[in-house]
Amino acid sequence: MTYLDLQNDLASQGYVASDDLAMALHLAVTLGRPLLLEGAAGVGKTEIARALASARDTRLIRLQCYEGLDAAQAIYEWNYQRQLLAIQASGKTGKEAEAQIFSEDYLLERPLLQAIRQDTPPVLLIDEIDRADEEFEAYLLEVLADFQITVPELGTITAKSRPLVILTANGTRDLSDALRRRCLYAHVDYPERKTELAILDARCPGLSAALAGQIVGFVQDLRKEDLVKKPGVAEMLDFAAALSGLGVADLTEDPTALMAAMATLLKTEADRGAVPAEVAQRLAGRAA
């Protein structure tokens, strides 16, 4: 299998990957290394994992990172209520009780543990790793290095199958060099015009070619404006859906409808102010 096959597989799932990205994914699959995807919000980083999982027909296990994420949420936790009940109901004490309540039955699997205990290698998506704090990053390094997890009461659990790990980040804080070194890397940028047209075509097949060209041109021009939050691919798709819902066939024909549909693209007050109706009209005129 070459990276082109993978690119085709992803395309059949409705995900249009650039050559560099397809190559990085291909290497991550064949070498069994984690892949770090970086890029602005809304360029489709999370979507890659979803497309990859369905292309390879395997499970997607997702761990959303946030500040304060700890082992209990990411790896495993004991089922405390059941443990308490069990000790009291059984009337056992000491070693016996301990052996009973710290067994598999009382273990709650969280995404990381779940991922290494699957029979077929799943896709493990660790989303927005830069939101988690340094402690978690350090722990993750350990897991990614040998795919085993130690539960003090149970012993070491080794991976049945190595999950395909995809990490995403969009620059909330700088990641450590150690994590970067351990991963393959791909930078995901806003797609080029051609790629974005292909994405729009894959997701909204009903659109006329002229309108699709206008939408992509408009959004691409809008990204060049000085905005707080540049519209991503998902926003572009929402915009297209909004326009077809409003029955717009040409961007320049109805300024009110255009401004209404812009609600899908510009998500802050400052950005709304930065693109008044005249500017939107000018951009639409250029895209037409």
């Binding site: 990276y3 050559d19 290497l27």
Partner: peptide
């Protein structure tokens, strides 16, 4: 290993493969 996994004689493939391995940030 990465070069072994791609068509290393094709410069564009070798380039993309090495880039994925060696680059760590944008």
């Amino acid at each position: 290993a990465a070069l072994g996994a791609v068509e290393a004689s094709d410069p564009s493939e070798a380039r993309a493969a090495l880039c994925a391995v060696c680059a760590g940030r944008a």
